[in-house]
Design a protein around this nucleic acid. Sequence first.
DNA 1: TACCGCATTGTTAACGCTCACACTCTTCGG
DNA 2: CCGAAGAGTGTGAGCGTTAACAATGCGGTA
Lengths: 329, 329
Amino acid sequence: MMDVARLAGVSHQTVSRVLNDHPNVRQSTRSRVLWSMQELGYRPNSAARTLVTGHSRTIGVIGLDSTLYGPAATMHGVDDAARHADYRVNTVGLASIDRLSVLEAVERLATAGVEGVVVIAPLSSASEALADLPTDIPTVVVNAHPESGIASVTVDQADGAQRATEHLLAAGRGTVWHVAGPANWSESKGRVEGWMRALDEAKVDVPPPLTGDWSARSGYEAGRVLARLPEVTAVFAGNDHMALGLLRALHEFGRAVPDEVCVVGFDDIPEAAYFTPPLTTVRQDFSEVGRRCVRLLIGQIESTGDAAECSVVMPELVVRRSSTPNKVP
Amino acid sequence: MMDVARLAGVSHQTVSRVLNDHPNVRQSTRSRVLWSMQELGYRPNSAARTLVTGHSRTIGVIGLDSTLYGPAATMHGVDDAARHADYRVNTVGLASIDRLSVLEAVERLATAGVEGVVVIAPLSSASEALADLPTDIPTVVVNAHPESGIASVTVDQADGAQRATEHLLAAGRGTVWHVAGPANWSESKGRVEGWMRALDEAKVDVPPPLTGDWSARSGYEAGRVLARLPEVTAVFAGNDHMALGLLRALHEFGRAVPDEVCVVGFDDIPEAAYFTPPLTTVRQDFSEVGRRCVRLLIGQIESTGDAAECSVVMPELVVRRSSTPNKVP
DNA sequence: TACCGCATTGTTAACGCTCACACTCTTCGG
DNA sequence: CCGAAGAGTGTGAGCGTTAACAATGCGGTA
């Protein structure tokens, strides 16, 4: 910086002013400084700036070490929004999903000097771990439990699940079975809740839900059970990957989809439209979730705000072949 | 830090020594300092440390703003390896794929003070952009062209493609068609190359390859073309998602897989085993790729090394139902 | 006893930047 | 023609840490 100043014939402070777009710099001086910076290939040192201002312009993201579509898509939304707000993004993948590991991840980021944290790990354990966190650092959690009192952006899982279930009920085939996600995910809970609500309102029996782990494999396992029960005519899968496994199992057992069994998924992954048959599902706008996280977080950071705001994104039912039979069995 | 020193009755330098595990600190002093840190909830300031040491212990990752499985999985490998090496990870998603945007991303990271960059954006444009980069910052590129002379970790795409094609040829049905990935991806090129090599060696005709964009949609489009050509009996898809679309199209046109048409994909995404029918594919160990990237990069960083090393990971053919017909047509 | 060597600790000066303040030079109204 | 306001610029301090060197105290050896 001194070099730039010398070359431009000004003081280091003037260079700093140019760097920070201060108004009181003469145009000619400004361009001379700019030119010098160019000439010398000068790059401001962010560590020094952070040290003196106390602001790192960096947010941390805690993500799951998985390749699940939802978290990855949300991550991109976060990254994009942060870039536009001129913030850097520091990621930490969670080694395991217990609260200790969440705490450790937060600690890592805190030491790295982030100004806020977005948690894309919608596990109960994460929310709990965060609840009794040193509150000295702004935090936004994706799909946190509303009661937890932390700022969060949530997709209304229950609403989506309810609509999916109602859609299946509308086929008039009786009750709807459910392959749920892991019990410790808040998403799972919301979806189970919405599914039950729809069944209750329609006054039909609530069959016992099966539980998977979001993977196609687990959907397949569940499918092998369901396929053998002749009374199963409609299944709401907790996500699209499990729906894929389910479709596979039904196919193997010769149960035609959608003519014998209707299936609905959740997420609307890009491939869902190309399943056999194309999958009816509930779309979540993940990148919007990511963007809102950043907006909320930066709000908290820059206004020294408190307000544990919550933002809710509504999902949308996308009807495809897997739930629209031609003939009634 | 001063506070900690005062509470422990030592100088700030001794605190620093404890922090950095210097040998010459008496055990009793060390624990007293440690206790003070605990007591005061002290956290070292990484900006200050970076400023004085000149090392940020941060690496940058340039990724594609996509939810493709490969890049996401590689990213996790990088994140994991970096964490274990006690480096932080700064991500930047690429807004678009032109060279300007790559350069801009590198510039962002450089300003953020990263000590090295991993590029997970295996586009020709990325490699080119990187080739004429200010070489003042260590860089490792995933699947860069070997000729480019940059350090990289590559999966031997051509080998995988060749083996996939040979596997299809072994069914004895004549030539193998190919749905390639986008032309500007180095992966695509390698896979096309391997496919052609296999056909050449078997002395069979090389049909014109179709080109997709990795998405299931594009595979479906290609499938609608291929399904109508009765001479098509074996197809090698550039990745699993396109294979999925392909399967869908073949199904719609009543072409049985694998009995009429054999299909092989590439990547072995977790869902591939649950396609209808389960997909034969070529597995890439993405997290290994990520881990090696970090190892190479840290090697470059810490040894002030030059050595544009290249590391090659071999893919593996995974045979499933989609390429193993019962009856010969 | 005198002195060397080592373990342990303290002191001072950077690192590159921004902030607060001081200073100079215009410009303009009275 | 003088003084005040304000634009434009420079000076010095300090952000929290580590590196280099200096200083202290202890045990052992000549």
